[in-house]
């Protein structure tokens, strides 16, 4: 029993830290969601109160007015396309880095991954100039190109490892069966690297879905604006209609949370492993 008594302060401390961590992570979001169901008057009179009714009217208002649907579609198109392209081209490279040898391979890999250490926004002006020169200013294609470039280092880390861990016996068996280079990649290796591709894809989707700085710099009107940029305009557009402001914020944060909850383990593992190697 003596040991148990000694453990008590430590337990209180541990649970205290856990509770604090949980609350600071969840409470702001719960507050936003709950507030979106309150009337303007309720929000102003007491920010801690619980809504009296569950009225979804405000959500359909936000969706039908203010072009919310258009922002949402832009975000979805940009994030999904960029993720698909990125996973594909970095899988090609990851396969080579994981399974083949050639002169300068290590140098090239280090060069690709060391880019992780250059502060992302420092390349803003040249990228702005490049997108302008390609005639892609204020287009979704421009944003897709930029977001495709984003996760390069991280994706290569993850994908090289996935491909390297696929036994070479499979390749040799396929060669004996007369399979060519592309078929060995596409039919033999790619299916086995799926979990790595999902991990990299999830990380890149979340990054692209949430990106703000380049979306702000590279788009000019609502036809091409994504949700994170739109957030800024909600503040003005919903002047003094706080219910709508909270509802709009809820709609912006929800997709990311849902996707995360679906693939929690993968996200956590990839953050941990990429951090160590980064």
């Amino acid at each position: 029993m003596k040991v148990r008594v000694r453990e008590i302060p430590e337990r209180i401390f541990s649970y205290g830290v856990m509770l604090f961590t949980f609350l600071i992570s969840i409470f702001p979001l719960v507050w936003v969601v709950v507030s979106s169901f309150k009337t303007n008057k309720e929000i102003l009179s007491n920010p801690f109160s619980i809504p009296k009714t569950l009225d979804f009217q405000v959500y359909s208002d936000v969706f039908t007015q203010y072009n919310f649907l258009s922002y949402f579609k832009n975000s979805l198109i940009v994030a999904v396309t960029a993720t698909l392209i990125a996973v594909f081209i970095y899988s090609l490279a990851g396969y080579i880095f994981g399974k083949f040898d050639f002169r300068g391979k290590n140098f090239l890999f280090v060069l690709c991954t060391i880019t992780l250490l250059v502060p992302g926004y420092s390349r803003a002006q040249p990228i702005f100039a490049l997108i302008n020169k390609l005639g892609l200013y204020n287009t979704k294609t421009g944003l897709i190109l930029v977001y495709t470039s984003f996760g390069m280092a991280l994706a290569l880390f993850i994908l090289r490892l996935s491909f390297a861990s696929i036994p070479r016996d499979f390749d040799e068996a396929a060669i004996i069966d007369g399979a060519g280079f592309w078929r060995i990649f596409w039919n033999v290796n790619l299916p086995l690297a799926k979990s790595g591709m999902v991990t990299a894809g999830v990380l890149m989707f979340i990054q692209a879905w949430n990106e703000y700085f380049y979306a702000l710099v590279l788009t000019a009107d609502e036809a091409n604006r994504t949700l994170p940029v739109a957030v800024q305009f909600f503040n003005e557009a919903f002047s003094y209609n706080y219910t709508r402001l909270f509802a709009a914020l809820t709609l912006v944060i929800l997709p990311g949370i849902i996707i995360y909850l679906l693939v929690q383990e993968q996200v956590q593992n990839s953050v941990a492993s990429s951090g160590v190697k980064g």
Binding site: S25, I26, P28, L29, I206, W209, N210, E211, Y212, L227, P228, V229, V231, Q232, L249, V252, I253, G256, I257, I259, Y260, Q264, V267, Q268, V271
Partner: peptide, 10 residues
């Protein structure tokens, strides 16, 4: 993990 997966603008 959740604050990391939502937009930092939001």
């Amino acid at each position: 993990m959740i604050p990391m997966v939502i937009s930092s603008a939001a």
